[in-house]
């Protein structure tokens, strides 16, 4: 169980192994890794800078993880989100969920990402050939989060 906000990169394999070795009841681990894309809204992205609200971000992520535990029978969940300046191909976010069977792990993993994208206070700013721009919130993300309510 845990949430981390950090500037340094993460290793999904190391995180999944730590979770697996901590509990012999685990029969399934689902994970998601979000990655910086080179192309967004038709522009070439040279750099992506992530800003957050220290304190509230961790609280919001912990609440989202608690929501997932209340909805599904899962053994463990981890959210790692990077902040600072990243480049295309860099990892941004990791979600790992462990349960006895795959169904709960898959669903809780997707739920955690959908809620994180609409409820955790992070903001992305892109550097493109035309200058820098704040990324606008996406209505498709709101719709994705809405289907869980």
């Amino acid at each position: 169980m845990g949430v981390r906000v950090q500037t340094v990169d993460f290793d999904p394999g190391v995180e999944m192994a730590a979770m697996r070795l901590g509990n012999p009841k685990i029969g399934a681990i689902a994970s998601f890794v979000g990655i910086v894309r080179e192309l967004n809204e038709g522009s070439h992205v040279a750099e992506l800078t992530l800003e957050h609200y220290p304190g509230m971000t961790e609280k919001a992520l912990e609440k989202i993880v608690a929501d997932a535990r209340a909805r599904w029978d899962i053994y463990d969940a981890l959210v790692v989100h990077r902040v600072g300046t990243l480049k295309p191909t860099d990892q941004i976010v990791l979600v790992v969920v462990a349960s006895a069977h795959r169904g709960e792990a898959f669903q809780a993993c997707e739920f955690l990402m959908d809620y994180l994208k609409t409820r955790a206070p992070f903001w992305k700013k892109e550097k493109t050939p035309d200058g820098t721009r704040w990324v606008d919130a996406c209505t498709a993300d709101d719709a994705a989060a809405e289907r869980w309510s």
Binding site: H52, Y53, M56, K117, P121, F122, W123, K124, A137, D141
Partner: peptide
Amino acid sequence: VAFFPPVTGG
């Protein structure tokens, strides 16, 4: 009290 735009993490 904090003011901010809609969030865009993940």
